[in-house]
Design a protein around this nucleic acid. Structure first.
Length: 416
DNA sequence: CCTCCACCGGAACGTGAGGAGT
DNA sequence: ACTCCTCACGTTCCGGTGGAGG
């Protein structure tokens, strides 16, 4: 009977009381600083309780602005009130990033209306789409009442498969009326303010009868949110001074993303736990920030084309030598040497300019064009790597790029 | 005020991969 | 299997430019 490797960890007291509330899968019942938005949506959806059809809506806002949380909250309240007063209201939440074809959305909606086992499931695939639609209409009418269909990340769906589904859903009330009493309204949730440009004008006007814009949280608001969650999620008195401020300030920089704020708080508490501390310190937040950034950046670097990695590598190499505000020419020089060293062809400087602006767009480097007068006009380039990724990214950037180049998995021009 | 550096970035073009249609 | 088309990647050529220094 040796020691079990988990003994140690289990006996160590946790800093978490309830880790779930710090995840973004958690649906809170308190939503600070979203009164205005809640009011607008509530005002529209109350029609459902009066037996009327609420307008279709589109909710806009950056990630982590609370769109999903607000919608879920209102829907559950709506459903609850409906039950209480005997009006059937049936909200369905569809995440269009995971359920991302017309067929799957319709099937999902249809199957969400399954009662008992009296009906057959709509299969994953196999039926013609219009039959699924028919079935959905039938089931909605059998259930009756008002159906609220929430299409989360609707912009993603539209960009992928067009607006057919929305066209059908916007006109579904006609089909419902023809055969029953049920009514339906659609709420789209979008990260992209301009996604309606992808829509047919008819769909656009039907869907966007009422828009609600969620502005990003500022640091103060984020702090309020974190305080609420920390109170129920983390052991009392285990957050030291400034931890919440820092988490919210960092997340506010990240376009006011509440998810990021929660991630930061959760990960930094984990970090504190791992290092056996009784309290979460500011340094743990820094560690967490670093880790989250690494987790975001690493996959991006991994999928970069080899030449692009080499360019990034050249920038990092310059920085490693203590240089900052590197000019394009300097990067190109290093890049050429690197190519020579590894025996690969080098691209022209014109091309490198494009690759650099590409890296800029990906947020891996920071570049701005400046004029140094007599000494020409160029870019000032700096990398955006979190500190701890430096070594790793160098490895990835160099080794993987070059192994890809060596193994010939990348095509080079064979010139005379 | 003019020059001139060191690059920016648009335009036109070539090339091969991969998808659609037949 | 075939053509046709689009797309991403690269190249060449070149006009454009903000401001330090003369």
């Amino acid at each position: 009977m040796g020691e079990n490797i988990f003994d140690n960890l289990l006996s160590h007291p946790s800093l978490f009381v309830n880790k779930e509330v710090l995840r973004h899968s958690h649906h809170p019942s308190e939503l600070p600083h979203r009164k205005k938005e809640i009011k607008a949506i509530r005002f529209n959806l109350v029609e459902a309780l009066k037996g009327q059809i609420p307008s279709n809506m589109v909710l806009y806002g950056v990630t982590g602005a609370g769109k999903t949380a607000v919608t879920r909250f209102i829907c559950s309240q709506l459903e609850g009130k409906g039950k209480q007063i005997g009006k059937s209201v049936n909200p369905v939440h569809v995440n269009c990033r995971t359920i991302d074809t017309q067929y799957r959305v319709l099937a999902f909606l249809g199957n969400s209306l399954l009662e008992d086992n009296e009906k057959e499931d709509i299969p994953f695939t196999g039926w013609p789409t219009d039959r699924v639609f028919e079935e959905l209409v039938k089931r909605m009418n059998e259930r009756g009442g008002v159906h609220v269909i929430v299409l989360d990340e609707i912009d993603h769906l539209v960009k992928k498969v067009g607006d057919d589904l929305l066209y059908n859903l916007c006109n579904i009330n006609d089909d419902l009326k023809r055969r029953g009493q049920a009514r339906c309204c659609v709420i789209g949730i979008s990260n992209d303010l301009k996604f309606t440009e992808y829509l047919d004008p008819r769909v656009k006007s039907r869907l966007g009868q009422e828009d609600v814009i969620f502005s990003p949280y500022d640091a103060v608001q984020l702090k309020d949110i974190l305080e609420d969650r920390a109170e129920i999620g983390i052991k009392t008195n285990s957050l030291s001074e400034g931890v919440l401020q820092l988490c919210s300030a960092l997340a506010a920089q990240e376009h006011g993303d509440a998810r990021r704020a929660l991630d930061l708080l959760r990960v930094s508490t984990e970090k504190a736990e791992q290092s056996g501390c009784e309290t979460v310190e500011v340094q743990h937040v820094r560690m967490a920030q670093n880790q989250i950034e690494c987790d975001q950046i690493t996959p991006i670097i991994k999928t970069l084309p080899p030449q692009q990695k080499l360019v990034l590598y050249s920038v990092l190499l310059n920085e490693k030598n203590g240089l900052s505000n590197i000019a394009t020419g300097e990067v190109y020089e290093i890049y050429r040497q690197a190519c020579q060293h590894y025996g690969t062809n080098n691209l022209t400087q014109r091309r490198i300019t494009d690759l650099l602006s590409n890296l800029d767009m990906l947020g891996l480097i920071n570049s701005k064009t400046v004029s140094r007068g007599r000494y020409g006009r160029s870019k000032q380039i700096n990398s955006c790597m979190p500190i701890s990724i430096d070594a790793t990214s160098l490895m990835i950037a160099s080794d993987e790029a070059l192994s890809a180049v060596d193994s010939g998995s990348y095509r080079f021009q064979t010139r005379l």
